[in-house]
Amino acid sequence: MMPPPEEAGSEPPRPTQALFLERQSYRRRRLVDVARLLPLLGVLLLLVPLLWQGKGEGLETPISTAITYVFAVWALLILGAGLFGIAARRWGGDKRADTEE
């Protein structure tokens, strides 16, 4: 009797990405989403002062308000980036989080 023939020409199995991730990886990806959204948030918040242009005497915004606002937004962005940096350090050894786009 002949041995059953090999399945010639069939494609080698490809490593497919799992549809659902572990809780940890899922959190990680959402964190990356935050990191991506952070600059957009910054742009939006920094555009807000442009709406403040008061016309005429007494209606103008004092510059101290603007300074406080801009520096507050700035500090917020730094805080966000810092927290993300700390979180990113915790998964430092993990290659997968690094390679995902």
Binding site: A35, R36, L38, P39, W74, A81
Partner: peptide, 21 residues
């Protein structure tokens, strides 16, 4: 020009904050 100078620093801040991109 008042506070306009700060844009020179805000641009790089946004780039750095969006480093992942």
């Amino acid at each position: 020009s008042g506070l306009e100078f700060i844009t020179i620093y805000l641009g790089p801040t946004l780039v750095m904050v969006g480093w992942w991109w």
